[in-house]
Design a protein around this nucleic acid. Structure first.
Lengths: 294, 294
DNA sequence: GGGTTCATGTGCACAGATGCACCAAGGAGC
DNA sequence: GCTCCTTGGTGCATCTGTGCACATGAACCC
């Protein structure tokens, strides 16, 4: 069955009983209504209406169409009101994606957001690959570093994640503690395995120490972190993750160029919706409390 | 929500994920699809799809539309198959109307028809007023006499209802039995009250006997019949109704010009359907068995 | 019974929707 | 890194569908 508009026209004729009445409701000329009915009946090969001087009386088929189209109209009306209201309410699915490293920071934010808006179902996706906002994979992405800013995306700065150079007490007991950058000779380091890394502190580390000094390399950030904690070498960690571990010693004072700027990225189509705006506001509020760690 | 076709277009885009695919399925140019989506989103004030190089990905609203339109398409498909098959099956409602006088004859016909086609719901309407086929009030009408044949109606002869001139034995005991038409003087007659009657035997009676001889007149055919049975006078009765009453005596041999020709009338739009045809065949078969009474 | 009103039906002119051609851009595969 | 292919986007010519005017017929009211 092609041409749903003709069904809609026939529906109004069946409901009102006259072509003229249907034409007025539909906002078209009554000639159009007649032509729609004629075309529909011709294609169906069956009469939907009995024509007479007082109007159109639906046949059995016409009454069948009436009841089906009646529910269709109601369904569509509900659909429209849902869609129109959808931008105005804070409900439904909210998909947030970020790098795995800051999941600790974001999870409580998600939780309190859901407390505030119970109708929201949060999906928090962390994966190695970068989720694509323009494919509709997520509403909001939180990313680090200065990534490519695609034209369809809205980018907002969130906060700066401070990274520090740490070593475990067990490492210091074995290899000593370098007093400064000049004292790095002979020390062992932990660094990401990837040659090209976007993290500024890892770029700094690769530029500063000799490649042979990198005793432990891994692709997984969590693995690197564990290596530092277990004394495999001196390495970078997020300050907020190292802060509560008394076994870790900060080797050098933190430098601003090690910081990773966090950015909030939303697709321009979704950025305007109240749901996304509510989450952005909530996220920025929560980020103020991160100051102690950044 | 006006313009159901745009919803249908959006449905196919959401289902297939690409504008080109939807255009092919819908049999239109892909530019048309784009314009439909744009118009729909503009009117809704919400994005239904995220556009990207690999196609259109439905948003939350788009997925909502998808599921609603999915069921709509299925409903319409069912509707179409019902309507297309409706002319081919013998089921649903069958509305038959006739004059009250032959309800005795028709009721068993209805019963056996329903036995043969259990899916048919029969409505047998008898009323003083003439039901109008062109208003869809009935599928089949059985009428007597030579009525007006409207252009939209299909008229078929059914059979002839024989009428006879009867008197009760009690009447004959009191007033004697006329041997012939010439012997009618001094006798009492029962006739319809209406000056203009379409029944041929009543026209004959009014033309034959003096008005003063009409001792009993009524508008209701059943009342006239009862009057004859009770001995109020000599009067016409349907032969099939008088045959099984031993108390009634036929005064004159039946004449062909007293017969009422029965006609089957159907609306031209409904005449072709299998349901009506099945009933007409069944009715004509049954009418052959009426021969004994006609 | 005649005028009035409201209904459907149809020829014609126009406009908005459609199709076409072409362009641009992003993946996929080599 | 290259080309090929698929997909979306847009200006322009065309055509189908729409609106208008008018005709026609039936029912209703005075």
């Amino acid at each position: 069955m092609e041409n749903w508009d003709e069904i809609r026209t026939a529906f109004q004729v069946a409901r009102l009983g006259t072509v003229s009445g249907a034409a007025e409701v539909l906002g078209v000329h009554h000639a159009t209504v007649i032509r729609h009915i004629d075309a529909l009946e011709k294609r169906l090969g069956a009469k939907l209406f009995q024509r007479h001087a007082r109007g159109y009386t639906p046949t059995e088929s016409g009454r069948d169409l009436l009841s089906v189209a009646q529910t269709t109209e109601e369904q569509f009306a509900h659909l429209v009101s849902r869609i129109k209201g959808q931008g105005e309410t804070v409900a439904g699915e909210l998909v947030v994606t970020s790098i795995a490293g800051i999941a600790d920071l974001l999870t409580p934010v998600m939780g309190s957001f859901q407390d505030k808006f119970p109708d929201v179902r949060v999906r928090f996706l962390t994966d190695m690959r970068v989720f694509r906002l323009d494919y509709g994979e997520a509403h909001v992405a939180i990313r680090a570093g200065a990534g490519p800013e695609e034209p369809d995306n809205v980018v907002q700065p969130l906060s700066r994640i401070k990274a520090g150079l740490y070593a475990s007490r067990s490492y210091i007991e074995r290899f000593g503690r370098p007093a400064s950058e000049a004292d790095f000779g002979g020390h062992r380091f932990v660094c990401t395995d990837a040659e090209v890394t976007r993290a500024p502190f890892h770029r700094w580390l690769r530029a500063t120490v000799h490649p042979d000094q990198i005793a432990y390399a891994a692709t997984e950030p969590a693995a690197l972190e564990l290596a530092v904690r277990q004394g495999a070498g001196i390495g970078f960690m997020m300050s907020f993750r190292a802060a509560d571990d008394p076994n870790l010693v900060e080797i050098l004072p933190s430098r601003p160029d090690w910081d990773s700027p966090l950015r909030i990225i939303t697709h321009v189509d979704l950025h305007r919706t109240r749901k996304v705006q509510a989450f952005l506001t909530h996220l920025k509020d929560a980020a103020k409390d991160w100051k102690s760690c950044t």
